[in-house]
Design a protein around this nucleic acid. Structure first.
Length: 499
RNA sequence: GAGCCGCUAGCUCAGGGGUAGAGCAUCUGACUUUUAAUCAGAGGGUCGAGGGUUCAAAUCCCUCGCGGCUCACCA
């Protein structure tokens, strides 16, 4: 601990007050405190009660909270305390609480936790308040809170010390309460459709199910490297094989990639799988889920996000990637063509492609570079090229493309789904194709998972599968510009010069 | 990884070569319905870190750290 001389005036003052409390025989770090009301209950019960009526009712309450403001004037004073539900004003008179407690009140600091007994009343301007008859300190704060009026603005400090952000910036608290409701509502919806929620390992011996670089860790007793999962996919499919006909998991996945306003190294994914479904069924589930959650959580399906008005009501546009590219650029990839011809079209239309890219890669590049950003209203883009979809069924009508969709809203991807590949021979070929890409230098291409292939050889029912980025969904529904604003503790570099 | 911007008191911010400022917060005093309470006084700083230029650097230059945004990467 720092020596006294290193402490700022405010830290010294609070430690001094702490010592005085001990000397008076008062425990500044108290224990259990039984409340009769919180601020939410007080407000819902008495906000609309007339001042005189409230006086007559003489409602006694016991409350607790953190002191957020103090306005003292001689032998009386006002203070605001804050609990989870909000704030309420206290009115403390020396002749109500007595000399001893009033002395404590005089020396109590903003940030301290207090417990109070009193009666509910309204001030001259009609503010619901508590006339305090008994007052005690429940926990002493040794550091000052950020500015009561401006709050905490410093973005770095808000992320590093989220607890301060939550104490002084009420809208931040609301965002995370909403996040909790969103996730709960997703669960409610899937549970109502008889999906079974499961938990599968987050440490994998092979990081599969997506194209991404994993985090590597090590198990000492087994003396083996393990990978933090980059997707939930392959374990949930094993459960489909095992006879769980409808399963989902909401959990963390980890990708060892850059950090920006849309990416955090660990984030929350929903994946669900349903036996005997195909892509069409999954589209229905997806749009119904979004609409249900928006309606339940926000009370509406029309939302504003990044200067767009977006309607999440079901019945979204369904558009094949090739048609989307054709619509935006006039380039038609339906006719059969060679990889060379495809790359030539890219060159002609200013789409940058690598020299070894195949027809499928080129189509995808066209979509990403020319179409993706322009999609505003919820749109299912379907039929991704098979080469970039190693876990999806081929489209029987055109085997260059897969039975897959990605959901785009406001130029951003929110979901990814397939009619799941359930042919183990084809799956092996797809993995082998991925291994060849890997050998060619794509370190995000997937690794062959023999254990998963064996599982599939026992027979996997036709299955529809879906993945939704929960953080992005929360961003959308909470109008958050950065993923860090919907993560309580976003990943940050360590600071070694910590004050 | 690149570019731009930022880092000054506990918090919010001014100050951009000439002795470090304000508001809130803190401390002392006054005040029994205030609410960004008010009034009077006081204390509080390694100006992100290190180097350089200069008689003189918070300020100009270089390096580094941390953060934000944009781009790249991320099917």
């Amino acid at each position: 601990m720092a020596q006294e001389v290193d402490l700022t005036d405010q830290l010294q003052a609070r430690r001094e007050k702490l010592r005085e409390l001990f000397e008076q025989g008062i425990n500044p770090f108290g224990g259990r405190f039984e409340r009769t009301h919180d601020t939410g209950k007080i407000r819902s019960l008495y906000s609309d009660t007339e001042t005189d009526k409230l006086e007559e009712m003489n409602v006694a309450v016991v409350m607790a909270g953190r002191l957020m403001a103090k306005r003292r004037k001689g032998k009386a004073g006002f203070a605001d305390i804050q609990d989870f539900e909000g704030r309420i004003q206290l009115y403390i008179r020396k002749d109500s609480v007595g000399d001893e407690q009033y002395e404590i009140f005089k020396h109590i600091d903003i940030g301290d936790f207090v417990g109070v007994e009193g009666t509910v009343f309204k001030t001259h301007v009609g503010e619901l308040s508590i006339k305090v008859t008994n007052f005690c300190i429940l926990s002493k704060a040794l550091r000052p809170l950020p500015d009561k009026f401006h709050g905490l603005k410093d973005v770095e400090q808000r992320y590093r010390q989220r607890y301060l952000d939550l104490i002084v910036n009420p809208e931040v608290k609301q965002t995370f309460i909403l996040r909790s409701k969103i996730v709960k509502t997703v669960r409610d919806y899937l549970d109502s459709l008889n999906y079974l929620e499961v938990e599968t390992p987050t440490m994998h011996s092979i990081a599969g199910g997506a194209a991404a670089r994993p985090f590597i860790t090590h198990h000492n007793a087994l003396d083996m490297d393990l990978y933090m999962r980059i997707a939930i996919e392959l374990h949930l499919k094993r459960l489909i094989i095992g006879g769980f006909e409808k399963v989902y998991e909401i959990g963390r996945v980890y990708r060892n990639e850059g950090i920006d306003t849309k990416h955090n190294p660990e984030f929350t994914m929903l994946e669900l799988y349903a036996s005997y479904y195909d892509l069409r069924d999954i589209m229905d589930v997806t749009e119904n889920l979004f609409a249900y959650v928006a309606e339940k959580v926000l009370g509406k399906t029309t939302i504003e996000y990044e200067n767009n008005v977006i309607d999440l009501k079901s019945g979204w546009r369904r558009l094949h990637m090739v048609d989307a590219v054709k619509e935006a650029t006039g380039v038609d990839f339906w006719p059969q063509m060679s990889d060379e011809q495809a790359r030539q079209l890219a060159a002609e239309h200013g789409v940058s492609v690598a020299p070894d890219m195949t027809f499928g890669h080129v189509v995808n590049e066209f979509f990403e570079q020319k179409v993706e950003d322009t999609i505003v209203q919820p749109t299912f883009i379907t039929g991704h090229p098979v080469v970039i979809s190693p876990l999806a069924k081929k489209d029987p009508k055109d085997e260059r493309f897969s039975d897959r969709f990605e959901l785009f809203i406001g130029g951003r991807e929110y979901a990814n789904a397939f009619s799941e590949l359930n042919d183990p021979i084809d799956q092996r070929e797809r993995f082998e194709q991925q291994m060849r890409e890997r050998e060619a230098g794509n370190d995000e291409a997937q690794i062959i998972d023999e254990d998963f292939l064996e599982a599939m050889e026992y027979g996997m029912p036709p299955t529809g599968g879906l993945g939704i980025g929960i953080d992005r969904l929360v961003m959308l529904l909470t109008h958050s510009a950065s993923i860090r604003d919907v993560l309580l503790f976003p990943q940050m570099r360590v600071r070694d010069d910590k004050k």
